[in-house]
């Protein structure tokens, strides 16, 4: 196959980096995506991802206009994602109301700030690759960073699996059993923020939500419990990213949108398949 040959071709290492990044990062996507879908906080992930543009813009501006080399787009993205997660978390923990207003405001303010920074950054910056992603731009150095973020996110989420599960399922009861539920909720949002940064690298800001939730939604149709859903979501994410990459390489299509369309089609197929099965047996299977 064309794609397999290209992967082996030493002249185009970026394709290998892209595939490797996608497969490694899928672990974080699957685990955090499952929490996000189960706890129904997709819209929070969406707001965080749009805030990331502010960080990317600030990073570009600092590097190119101010000459601060150590504060680049990636550092900016991580910092703003974490700040956005903490703001949203504290508002939903303490204000009770108007959470959706704050989320909506952050969503567009983050975007606007990013575009302003980019406009004032000397030289031409192409915002498209941040908005719609380009996994093929990933270098070997990026790959190490992706690996590090992935380890932090997946490791933390697995070590505190039962605490996070309880906080998502029944916050009040978890609190009665002595769990610091507010801290764990903030932890979950911060892990989501780091995952969003990884996702932005793969499919771009605009399509983060799709790659975060579609694998988990497909997995939720078959999984018997949260743990299984995480494993299945990770496998689905790996499958969507690698087949999306293959299709985009073979037909010369942009990688981000191709991956998302593959994921979307798989989700629709699963929904349709479940409908048919349900009609034939009258037995609902799994959830979501």
């Amino acid at each position: 196959m064309d794609f397999l040959n290209a992967l082996a071709d030493p002249a185009i290492p970026f394709l290998r980096y892209a595939l490797l990044t996608g497969i490694v990062a899928s672990l974080a996507f699957g685990i955090i995506g499952t929490y996000v879908v189960a706890r129904r906080i997709t819209y929070i992930a969406g707001a965080i991802s749009h805030c990331v543009l502010a960080g990317i813009g600030a990073g570009l501006y600092c590097q190119k206009a101010l000459g601060i080399d150590w504060f680049g787009p990636l550092t900016g993205a991580i910092v703003t994602a974490l700040i956005a997660a903490l703001i949203i978390g504290l508002v939903s923990l303490h204000a009770n109301q108007r959470e959706d207003t704050v989320i909506g405001a952050l969503w567009s303010i983050g975007m606007a700030t990013g575009l302003l920074f980019i406009a004032k950054t000397p030289g031409y910056v192409e915002p498209m690759s941040y908005l719609f992603g380009n996994i093929l731009l990933i270098s070997q150095a990026d790959l190490w960073l992706v690996l590090a973020l992935d380890t932090v996110v997946a490791g933390t989420a697995l070590l505190f699996y039962h605490q996070l599960l309880a906080v998502c399922f029944d916050e009040e009861y978890a609190r009665l059993r002595g769990i610091r539920t507010d801290l764990f909720y903030l932890l979950l949002l911060c892990l989501t923020a780091l995952t969003v940064v990884l996702l932005v690298r793969v499919v771009g800001i605009v399509m983060v939500i799709a790659l975060l939730t579609l694998p988990a939604a497909v997995a939720g149709s078959f999984a018997r419990g949260l743990w299984q859903m995480m494993v299945l979501a990770t496998l689905c994410s790996m499958l969507f990213i690698s087949s999306g990459l293959a299709v985009s390489y073979s037909y010369d299509l942009p990688s981000g949108p191709t991956i998302i369309v593959v994921a979307g089609l798989a989700y629709l197929l699963v929904l349709a398949g479940k409908r048919l099965l349900h009609r034939r047996t009258g037995q609902p299977k799994g959830i979501a």
Binding site: A38, R40, L159, F160, L165, G220, R224
Partner: peptide, 29 residues
């Protein structure tokens, strides 16, 4: 608790729900 506030689609097994009663004894893992 009063049976009401559970998300009807939440993917959690019966055993995992019952284990939540032991959360205070759990440190990590």
């Amino acid at each position: 608790p009063q049976y009401a506030h559970y998300d009807p689609l939440f993917p959690v097994t019966v055993l995992d729900v019952v284990l939540m009663g032991r959360l205070d004894r759990l440190a990590i893992g």
